[in-house]
Write a protein that binds this DNA or RNA. Structure first.
Length: 565
RNA sequence: GGGGCGGUAGCUCAGCAGGUCAGAGCAGGGGACUCAUAAUCCCUGGGUCGCGGGUUCGAACCCCGCCCGCCCUACCA
């Protein structure tokens, strides 16, 4: 049996993530993981916070906390929110874990032994006032080209020209504002990934069926020529470099972050006896999910690191890259407080509303734009009207006419056979979409299934049948209830909470086909008999409330939105 | 500057390897029905497939040039 290893790009420790982060990596990975588990596959879905680097240190300082404590708090905060969105990680780890430290140092040693790491002395800006070396973008000053007075040391945001910090006029620290800056020599380790370029290219070019986005970004880097890359920094917070003369230096965050995929797997294994973490990295089908900014790390650098070790670490079998979700066409921005962050989203509505909308609009082929208007329309039409109303109309009508148990009525006839046939076809398309990791398409097929339920009801019109032939109406309603259960099963990857409700409406007995069912098999769809006649059922509260114009206006106000949009 | 992705009906998007490829959903229009969250179901889509050339018997899909949007350019992660 195939085992599926799934990872989503590690969210950075610094702050609550926004909906763009969610839809670009964690949510689709979760949908995929849930689907495979429901099909009975063995799945390990791993994620973690990415905790090292300058931004974490500065954020901790700003919060007045030791960086380790800051990260611990932020990790807990993020974990709670992801739980709120029902992200079904098998383990949500931390790149600062002892497991990752050990593995990162192992990678460092192994690559050194393979002669793929060399020492170079580079010049870096040092700020005595801050007591630290400053990454290029933490040095600000006046752009020598356009005169913009807040240009960063790596690039001027105003004229977009690439810069070197020493070019800046009147340079100062972005951290403290100090103008007392000096350029010091600092020796660092470089990963000689250029030597692995041919092997990376061969690997990339042998990948069939990967998203264009993924391969084009990877090939772009290769075509421009891979440069060796520094993998250490002068920081305190990180994985220490075990090497003579490297006291006070740590591995650079992009080096230890991808290793945390492995580290978190080991963390998972260390939490309970009998878990074999190593085999997941030798023998499995491995899929990575990430937004496009992370593609170079996953398609070039991490594979290079793995190849460089000469050890049997699993390379990704599939890299699913996503474009950006924008907010009314603009970038979600933490610093400007623009857009929707995950904690605020959960304050407004339960997770399923977001999960469905985001998957149905996942930025797979291009950036896609969030707007409250589109969100409300789609939630109302698909979730409230098509699915929620279906559940409600079937159950309330049946209860009114036949009481609190599932009515028996006639045996299934031609309409039921045709319905099953259509659903079987839709389900096959849906499964193919999920297996192919085409999320928008999957949402469309799921909606088509819901809609088929409504079409069936219109065709049978039990409100007419009841007048002449109650047994016919009973069959229709019993079939409708089985459709509810079917929808509960197949909707679970996208809307798990609502799906659980739909599956738990019935007083099933252990011998019933629906008892413990995890997915809809074709032979079962042909019968539509998960829920037998005579079982008790309950009518749930409305599954999805309709979003009103007032809601939209309130949210536009609260989150900010362009006047004319 | 270099590079990547995208530019298809009012909106959001499908169109994988050139010949039912001019499509879906939503919105809009018409009809049916009343069980239901004024929900549902059926019917209704003529848009220069960004622009201009070219290759081909035939191109939205291949090539060249141009325009527009977004993104990347490796010391943010």
């Amino acid at each position: 049996m195939t085992r599926y290893l799934i990872t989503s790009a590690l969210p950075y420790i610094n702050g609550i993530k926004h909906l763009g982060n969610l839809v670009g990596s964690m949510l689709p990975a979760d949908v995929y993981a849930r689907y495979l588990r429901q099909r009975g596959e063995e799945v390990l879905y791993i994620c973690a916070t990415d905790e090292h680097g300058t931004p974490a240190e500065l954020a901790a300082a700003a919060a007045g906390l030791p960086v380790a404590e800051y990260c611990r708090q932020q990790h807990e905060l993020q974990a709670k929110i992801y739980e709120g969105f029902e992200l079904s990680f098998d383990h949500f780890g931390r790149s600062s874990s002892p497991e990752n430290r050990e593995l990162t140092q192992h990678f460092g040693r192994t690559l050194t032994a393979a002669d793929l790491i060399e020492e170079r002395v580079i010049k870096q800006v040092y700020s005595p006032a801050d007591g630290r070396f400053l990454p290029d973008r933490y040095v600000v000053g006046t752009c020598p080209y356009c005169g913009y007075d807040a240009a960063r040391g790596d690039q001027c945001e105003n004229c977009t020209r690439l810069l070197d910090p020493v070019q800046l006029i009147d340079p100062r620290s972005a951290v403290s504002g100090s103008r007392d800056l000096e350029v010091r020599d600092s020796k660092h380790l470089y990963f000689r990934q250029s030597r692995l370029a041919p092997r990376i290219r061969e690997w990339i070019e042998s990948r069939a069926g990967w998203p264009t986005l993924t391969t084009s970004i990877a090939l772009k880097w290769l075509n421009e020529g891979l440069e060796d890359r520094g993998i250490t920094r002068d920081l305190e917070w990180g994985v220490p470099v075990e090497r003579e003369g490297y006291e006070g230096k740590v591995y650079y965050v992009w080096f230890d972050a991808p290793i945390e995929y492995i580290g978190a797997t080991k963390e998972w294994a260390d939490q309970a006896p009998g878990r074999d973490w190593r085999s997941w990295w030798e023998d499995s089908h491995y899929t990575q999910f990430m937004a496009k900014d992370n593609v170079p790390f996953h398609s070039i650098m991490f594979p290079a690191m793995i190849m460089g070790t000469g050890e049997s670490w699993k390379l990704a079998d599939f890299i699913k890259g996503f474009n950006w979700l924008t907010y009314y066409g603009g970038k979600f921005s933490t610093s400007r407080g623009y857009g929707i962050f995950m904690d605020a989203a959960l304050e407004i509505l339960p997770p399923d509303y977001w999960r469905y909308f985001l998957i149905a609009n996942a930025p797979e082929s291009d950036d896609s734009s969030f707007s409250w208007e589109l969100f409300a329309t789609q939630v109302n039409k698909d979730l409230a009207d098509t699915l929620g109303n279906f559940v409600n109309r079937v159950l309330t009508f049946s209860r009114k006419r036949f009481g609190d148990t599932v009515p028996e009525g006639n045996p299934a006839g031609e309409p039921e056979r045709k319905l099953a046939e259509e659903l079987t076809k839709i389900l096959a398309d849906y499964e193919a979409a999920l297996e192919g990791k085409h999320f928008r398409r999957a949402a469309q097929h799921l909606k088509a299934a819901w809609s088929a339920g409504n079409s069936y009801l219109e065709l049978k019109a039990p409100w007419m049948e009841i007048k002449e032939n109650p047994e016919a109406a009973a069959l229709t309603l019993r079939t409708g209830m089985n459709l509810i259960h079917l929808f509960g099963l197949i909707s679970e990857p996208l809307i798990p909470a609502t799906a659980r409700t739909m599956q738990s409406l019935w007083d099933l007995e252990e011998s019933d086909p629906g008892y413990g069912a995890r997915w809809a098999e074709p032979e079962r769809i042909a019968q539509l008999d998960w829920i037998p006649a005579g079982r008790g059922f309950r009518v749930p509260e409305v599954l999805f409330r309709k979003l009103t114009d007032d809601d939209v206006a309130t949210w536009r106000e609260r989150f900010g939105a362009p006047e004319n949009a």
